[in-house]
């Protein structure tokens, strides 16, 4: 009995006089039972809350999935429609869409055809912070409008803040169609591969064919 009394005092040190009167009238046993029931009520709510939180968290985390489950092979058109030695801007429908995506499912990429069956498909997203790079065929450079990143025709970094070359998509030729493995905004965290991480020191003599030194 005295034990219960103690615990009661410990748990509610600042109880008002009204309830003190009540405890006088009803005795400590009744009151401590009420506290016990209150605790049971809190525990029950906690339990139910937890049970409900599990599906909520699962629902919230629904978009977090493996990259591969978002990606699939998309056709960019007839492989022969890309002239050898040139870089072309193409757009394709994102394979992962909802009917209310509007124009956002219209994704673009740069296709560079190096040989009969040799392609490089660049993401248009700057490897720095993702702005859309623009291709200038005259100077054979990609330029980024955001922070001034510049890339060479092969996607390697030429200057500016990017730490690496442009991202590329995996590609294959199937039934004469050029296909890429797409569906995800390319960024540093996903499967976008790195191209030619070139340090400034090696920039000048790239591929040894600049025929200029000496």
């Amino acid at each position: 009995m005295s034990d219960q009394n103690d615990s009661q005092q410990r748990t509610e040190p600042d109880i008002e006089t009204a309830s003190e009167q009540a405890s006088d009238r009803e005795g400590p046993a009744v009151v401590s039972r009420r506290w016990l029931l209150l605790k049971a009520g809190i525990a029950l709510n906690g339990l139910v809350g937890l049970a409900l939180a599990v599906p909520v968290v699962r629902y919230l985390l629904a978009p977090v999935r493996k990259d591969s489950s978002y990606k699939s092979w998309v056709s960019l058109g007839d492989a022969n429609s890309f002239p050898v030695g040139e870089t072309r801007l193409v757009s394709f429908k994102n394979p992962w869409t909802q009917p209310w995506d509007g124009q956002t499912d219209n994704v673009a990429a740069y296709v560079r055809r190096e040989g009969a069956s040799q392609f490089t498909v660049f993401a248009i997203n700057c490897a720095h912070l993702g702005c859309p790079v623009r291709w200038f065929p005259q100077s054979q450079l990609f330029m980024c409008p955001c922070h001034g990143g510049v890339y060479y025709a092969d996607g390697s970094r030429a200057s500016g803040p990017p730490e690496r070359g442009l991202f590329t998509y995996d590609y294959k030729i199937a039934g004469g169609q050029l296909q890429i493995d797409a569906g995800q905004m390319p960024s540093l965290s996903n499967t976008a591969k790195l191209v030619n991480i070139s340090s400034p020191a090696t920039n000048s003599g790239r591929n040894g064919d600049c025929g200029c030194r000496g």
Partner: peptide, 28 residues
């Protein structure tokens, strides 16, 4: 730019990007 910043977070970058976008790309 938000995506590219989040994607730099070690280990969780990809998951954070998916959470931010509600999917693999900026869309509906």
């Amino acid at each position: 730019i938000g995506v590219f910043i989040l994607s730099r977070v070690p280990w969780m970058g990809g998951g954070l990007v998916h959470l931010l976008l509600g999917g693999p790309t900026i869309a509906g």
